[in-house]
């Protein structure tokens, strides 16, 4: 009799779990389907290669697309080496000290700081103090700072998954610490590091608020041609279209969202492929 109860409990729990999986998936699917339906008609080469226009049908996302691409490039080039380096230091070299704990707590907290705050930091440090002006470089540096804690945390998690025995075995073979890290720990942790990096860059791709604070524009008639260029980004263009009264611009916004989603999917795909390659090589 009691056993029967247990079975029902288990079934109920299973049902609940299944429901918890399905509900967010269904909501996500609904939103994506809605956006794709709204925006699909607008997706074309002309939309990808066009400049913003007052005629919704002629408007395109090229400056935003190119701006976002360059921003990602700058963000990645700055945040990944620093972030991975910091994580390697904290995880492999750093000793358990009060300072280390303090740094750790701070990094976790930084990951939760609202992005606008990073925008203000970028405005004060990069735009003003370092004299970069409202340039794409300042925007990229700001986003790099924004995602730095994410890179550090995810890299540390990845490093922790490497069994301690690997390090000891490497040391036993006479490898120095540097050789161990370069030859054993980093390759072993690379899939995890990559996942974290892609997550971080995806977050940077979707950010609007810090860019607005740093001085991203909404309309530019040219593409960024140097690190010093004024710039715009895809999310800003989408935001602008969403707030327009005419329904045709809403379709443009939906199409812009689809482009943004495809970009993110592509980035995630690259991460998955790279990860697969690395795991096979071993």
């Amino acid at each position: 009799m009691k056993k029967n109860h247990e079975i029902w409990y288990e079934r109920g729990f299973l049902l609940l779990c299944g429901f918890s999986v399905l509900l967010p998936l269904a909501i996500l699917f609904y939103f994506v389907a809605q956006v794709v339906m709204d925006g699909f008609g607008r997706l074309s080469l002309q939309f990808l290669l066009g400049f913003p226009s007052r005629f919704a049908e002629q408007a395109g996302v090229l400056p935003g697309l190119v701006g976002s691409f360059y921003l990602l490039l700058i963000t990645g080039l700055i945040a990944l080496p620093i972030g991975v380096g910091a994580a390697v230091y904290l995880e492999e070299y750093g000793k358990r000290s009060r300072l280390a704990t303090l740094i750790e707590v701070n990094i976790s907290n930084l990951a939760g700081v609202p992005s606008v705050i990073y925008g203000l930091l970028g405005l004060a440090v990069f735009v003003r103090a370092l004299g970069m002006g409202r340039s794409i470089l300042a925007g990229g540096c700001t986003l790099a700072f924004l995602v730095l804690p994410i890179v550090v945390i995810s890299t540390r998690e990845a490093l922790r998954t490497v069994p301690q025995g690997f390090r000891e075995a490497s040391a036993a073979l006479g490898a120095t610490k540097w050789q161990t890290i370069r030859g054993v720990v980093l390759p072993e942790a690379m899939p995890g590091i990559l996942t974290g990096a892609i997550l971080a860059l995806s977050r940077a791709l979707g950010e609007t608020a810090p860019l607005v604070v740093v001085g991203a524009l909404t309309y530019v008639t040219f593409l960024p041609n140097s690190l010093n260029s004024p710039f715009t980004a895809l999310p800003l263009q989408i935001y602008n279209w969403v707030s327009r009264p005419q329904a045709a611009f809403a379709a443009n916004a939906a199409a812009g969202i689809v482009v943004l989603l495809i970009l993110m999917l592509a980035m995630n795909m690259i991460a998955v492929i790279l990860r697969g390659r690395m795991q096979n090589r071993r």
Partner: peptide, 8 residues
């Protein structure tokens, strides 16, 4: 000429 427009 290049024109840039921001919205703040």
């Amino acid at each position: 000429d290049n024109v840039t427009i921001g919205v703040s």
